[in-house]
Design a protein around this nucleic acid. Sequence first.
DNA 1: ATCATTTTGAGACAGCTTATCAATTTCAAT
DNA 2: ATTGAAATTGATAAGCTGTCTCAAAATGAT
Lengths: 144, 144
Amino acid sequence: MAAKHVKEMEALKEHLGKHQLKLTRQRELILSAFLRQEHITAEAMYHQLAKSDPHLGLATIYRTLNLFCDAGLAQARHFGSQTQYDNIAHKGHHDHLICTGCDKIVEFENCDIERLQEEVATQNGFIIKTHRLELYGLCSRCRH
Amino acid sequence: MAAKHVKEMEALKEHLGKHQLKLTRQRELILSAFLRQEHITAEAMYHQLAKSDPHLGLATIYRTLNLFCDAGLAQARHFGSQTQYDNIAHKGHHDHLICTGCDKIVEFENCDIERLQEEVATQNGFIIKTHRLELYGLCSRCRH
DNA sequence: ATCATTTTGAGACAGCTTATCAATTTCAAT
DNA sequence: ATTGAAATTGATAAGCTGTCTCAAAATGAT
Ligand SMILES: [Mn+2]
Ligand SMILES: [Mn+2]
Ligand SMILES: [Zn+2]
Ligand SMILES: [Zn+2]
């Protein structure tokens, strides 16, 4: 319990230190809840945490998840109308397959695609900083 | 002038006919303005058309651009916070390189990437219906 | 020309996220 | 341990993009 998510906590503390930010009870709480998820929206986390912490504000959730993005622990992804915060703390970069039938999300990684993306960028004089690749379709179960 | 965009106009009329919709002055006007663009937001088109047609409503622009999507002339893409309507009337499918410095958008097409996407989907039991691939970075000019 | 149906324009409304600001908390310096 | 400047929080207002509402106008089949 005490040894859980220590590395991520250290990463957060390092970011806080570099930017004159403070470690608060809320930030610790939200971090530990966030690290249990694969992807989550601010709203979903708000309702989840409200059970044990009814006074935690939605704005604080948003602020904190955005802070995690700055710290490199999370990545904001716009699936549909809401922002999903993706837990990339102990996962590398990855992209997503999204089932439009049941909203299932599958993560994948493909070096060949990444390499071709770089090629395309170079051909056009660009240097890629980020990218988004989302494949929308039907999973095996929803196909029927 | 009169022979411009005839094919797209016919495509629109065909769609209207099939769906009991009517051809209006506004739809003609918005179509001809839209076909001059590569990508445009509803807001941008609203301001552009307001010069010659101050009473054209923003809701009408949205409705009409969405109609073009249904008719296969346009495709909605969510870059950042706004929806860009992409003129795909006489272009096939394509993806985008986006400069975060100057907002320049370069279109590209890469069959190898598309093929690898299909592979990834198949491996995971998915059948792709659509996808989005956006590469964000700096163009040659903005790199300095 | 008639008239049922569709469309329009203006503004209200909705969903998601950020800004505001007084009160509280943190933490470095005593 | 106490102090106090600076950062943070929570409640809520505001912002932004896009859709809905509805009375008035336009369309087009007859
Ligand atoms: Mn993910
Ligand atoms: Mn395009
Ligand atoms: Zn599914
Ligand atoms: Zn640029």
